[in-house]
Design a protein around this nucleic acid. Structure first.
Length: 761
DNA sequence: TTTTCAAGAATTTTT
DNA sequence: TTCTTGAAAA
């Protein structure tokens, strides 16, 4: 006990030793928050609290796993494993499975991801014959999500003149109808979307006092991490559960609240003091992570925000180097700078790839960085973006598994009813939907009973539908005796999915088949992992739930060892790196063009920048580019206001003097050894397509009209990614001229000559 | 019903 | 530039 208390500073100790009652820990960036939480829970257990009575809610699954491991290190595995620890979504999904029947859901309900939700809404909008230009599915979904996060049910919606007025003003008078349909269809499909996991939990606790009492009694100690990013729905769950014993400890940092766009309400943390009587507040203000320069720079930025709690972050660490600000002329040059600088830093300071992170505002920015890192042979891993489980071939198999578990899952049904192609087209599906709505049954039910129900479909198609239903039912029977891995295997075999993938062109299909194999391995791994767990659950249902709630961090990539991390600033929350590059600091990008209209939006963007800065331990580089290509065209940009906001005591400009009127837009100041490539000469505001390889003039000769003309049948050519190949045939003229080329390693491809960057040999 | 081709949109951030 | 969607053709 004493041994770990010695590892804590006074405010940390106080926070750990405060056992009972409501408390709030304001934990600045890098102030040892995880350490405090870990020891706090360990302390509770050592004080005799049953781990079973502790509920700890974290922001990511990864954070939960790590904390559990650390706690196990202090109090032992057998104690630690009984703590309820996970994200809001994961923990309450688990509880909802226990209690599902009370709400009329099957215990093996499906969790719809955003993709599924948007597709269902698209379908509903079409069925209601609404204009999808006005009822944009994504926006409609966003709207519904907002209602749900604020506990506005369909009924509450119809009782709110303001909301109806707002939707009318947006030319969407049928919003309520769409909402109603969406909720009904999810219910009928036995499906909950992400927001439902919280909303339905609230419903459960509100409607069933005995259930509320049960969980209030169980969870006598509740801890919530990243409290600044909880939404109203989460807030209410926490309040309800903590109401009886009031042993509620919330941890957070208002300066790091960055999820307002998905309903996070910063007021939850700002008003926590008003919610409970006799609340204890602890402030962790000493930063152990970063240098003085970084902490001061970050402080000077966040100073510009009006809405915040009073605290002063300081550090006893070294002065460190100033924040380096770099101007470039294109995102390619930006990427090259990052790559070269990583390389230099590695040489000078003996750093590993894992010590570096490149952070950006939008996922699309990763491309230029990737390209540059690849050129320099620096290994990297991208977090976020299109996650593994969202890839088409993976989702297809998951859809089979989902339908096997839950026959009513509408989105899964629609996804695979004609994949692989069974000759069941859109017309048939539309008829099924109409009939299903009419009879208030699921699509699968109609397919299953197609001979008994008159849907107006010819006998050939009817046969195909009942064959499909039989296939799913036989797999269901199989799933009752065999484990998830075997079932997935059966799916792949019985549907000949691999053959289907092989039909596609060779280059893509290998990757897809690998993904399928990876998925199967993942399932096997999951089963083994669960078997090791005390309360392990190897069921297919549990696997699917894990997948639905998994993020990129939760999937180990065995090949990705010692890599530079590339991710959005959002994903970087809670992480730390020795050297951090923050790229694309331009107006309309960071801050995003979507978030510069109101003060609170700008403040959130500023907090986001604050989060980015405070990820770094020893060095920060901030870059911006004078030109950035968007949709294949170059546009000029303005440096971000946030650069100005860093007190210039803590910054140094590389390559350009700040406010130096003499400095030209060319890079005469740039150290030649930093930039391996020549800067492209680009005129402002001219929208021309500049091929990426322009900068590699020395290596690849830009193709001329003459060269394209020289390509003919039988020519041998080299392609950047596909390698060496032979031209089999040519057709089309001018910009449409294309060649069919047989590549040695990539098979036969049809390529447009104007884009293919072919080199004659 | 399926395949192909052209037009148009797309980029905020995620459980 | 790349991806998705919708209409036309097979």
């Amino acid at each position: 006990m004493e041994n770990y208390l010695n590892l804590l500073n006074p405010p940390q100790q106080e926070a750990v030793l405060q056992k009972e009652g409501p408390m709030m820990i304001i934990a600045g960036a890098g102030s040892g928050k995880t350490r405090v939480l870990t020891y706090k829970i360990a302390y509770l257990i050592q004080q005799g609290v049953d781990p079973f009575q502790i509920l700890s809610l974290t922001f990511t699954n990864k954070a939960a796993r790590e904390m559990k491991n650390r706690i196990a290190g202090v109090v032992g595995e057998s104690e630690a494993k009984n703590i309820w620890m996970g994200t809001f979504h994961a923990v309450f999904a688990k509880i909802l499975r226990f209690e599902a029947d009370k709400l009329g859901f099957p215990s093996n309900f499906t969790i719809y991801d955003t993709d599924d939700s948007v597709k269902l809404i698209t379908s509903i909008i079409k069925e209601l014959q609404l204009d999808k230009e006005i009822y944009k599915p994504k926006q409609v979904f966003g709207r519904i999500s907002k209602y749900k996060n604020n506990l506005i049910t369909v009924k509450a919606y119809y009782n709110s003149p303001e909301l109806i007025e707002a939707d009318n003003a947006a030319m969407r008078p049928k919003m309520g109808e769409v909402y109603q349909q969406y909720v009904d269809r999810c219910f009928k499909a036995g499906a909950m979307d992400f927001d439902d996991l919280l909303l339905r939990t609230n419903e459960l606790l509100a409607r069933f006092p005995e259930v509320l009492a049960k969980y209030q009694n169980r969870f006598r100690y509740i801890l919530v991490d990243e409290y600044q990013d909880t939404n109203h729905s989460q807030y209410l769950i926490v309040r309800a559960l903590a109401d009886r014993f009031q042993n509620i400890c919330v941890v957070g940092d208002d300066s790091q609240s960055i999820y307002a766009f998905r309903g996070a309400n910063i007021q939850n943390i700002l008003n926590f003091q008003k919610d409970y009587a006799d609340i204890k507040i602890f402030k962790l203000e000493q930063n152990y992570r970063s240098t003085k320069n970084i902490v001061s720079a970050a402080n000077s930025v966040i100073e510009n925000n009006k809405t915040k709690l009073d605290k002063t972050i300081w550090t006893g660490n070294d002065e460190g180097e100033k924040i380096k600000i770099i101007q470039t002329h294109s995102e390619a040059e930006e990427g090259n700078f990052v790559a070269s600088s990583i390389f230099e830093n590695q040489m000078q300071h003996q750093l590993q790839n894992t010590d570096f992170a490149v952070l950006y505002r939008t996922n699309a920015q990763s491309r230029a960085i990737e390209e540059a890192l690849r050129k320099k042979n620096i290994k990297y891993r991208i977090y976020g973006g299109v996650s593994f489980y969202l890839r088409k071939e993976v989702k297809d198999i998951l859809a089979y598994l989902r339908l096997i578990i839950n026959h009513n899952d509408e989105e899964a049904f629609k996804r695979i009813i004609n994949y692989p192609a069974r000759g069941i087209g859109q017309t048939t599906i539309d008829r099924l939907i109409v009939k299903a709505n009419e009879l208030n049954v699921s699509l699968f039910y109609i397919a299953e009973n197609i001979e008994k129900i008159d849907v107006g479909i010819n006998s050939g198609t009817r046969q195909k539908l009942s064959d499909f239903a039989m296939l799913i039912k036989s797999l269901k029977i199989f799933s009752q005796t065999d484990d998830a891995f075997e079932v997935a295997n059966q799916v792949v075999n019985k549907t000949f999915l691999i053959n289907e993938l092989k039909k596609e062109d060779a280059f893509e299909s290998t990757g897809r088949i690998e993904n399928v194999e990876e998925l199967l391995n993942g399932i096997r791994f999951f089963i083994i992992e669960q078997q090791d767990l005390a309360d392990g659950d190897t069921s297919l249902t549990n696997f699917l739930q894990n997948v639905a709630l998994a993020t990129d961090f939760d999937k180990e990539d065995p090949e990705a060892k010692n890599t530079v991390s590339l991710m959005t600033v959002h994903m970087a929350k809670g992480l730390e790196f020795k050297v951090v590059y923050i790229v694309g600091l331009e107006e309309n990008l960071f801050p995003s063009a979507m978030s510069i209209n109101t003060r609170s939006e700008i403040e959130e963007e500023r907090r986001l920048f604050y989060v980015a800065l405070t990820r770094a331990e020893i060095k920060v580089y901030v870059t911006y580019s004078l030109y950035r290509s968007r949709w294949g065209q170059f546009n000029d940009t303005e440096p971000s206001r946030f650069i100005e906001e860093i007190d210039d005591k803590y910054t140094e400009f590389i390559g350009k003097q700040k406010n130096n009127n003499n400095s030209s837009r060319t890079s005469s100041f740039l150290k030649p050894d930093i930039f391996e490539t020549k800067n492209p000469v680009i005129q402002p505001k001219i929208s021309i397509n500049i091929p990426k390889n322009l900068k590699k003039v020395s290596e690849i000769k830009p193709k001329t009209q003459g060269e394209i003309a020289n390509i003919q049948m039988g020519s041998f050519v080299i392609h950047e990614t596909f390698g060496k190949g032979e031209v089999l045939s040519l057709d089309g003229t001018g910009p449409n001229r294309k060649a069919e080329i047989k590549f040695e390693n990539a098979g036969i491809k049809k390529l447009l000559l104007q884009f293919a960057k072919l080199q004659l040999i």
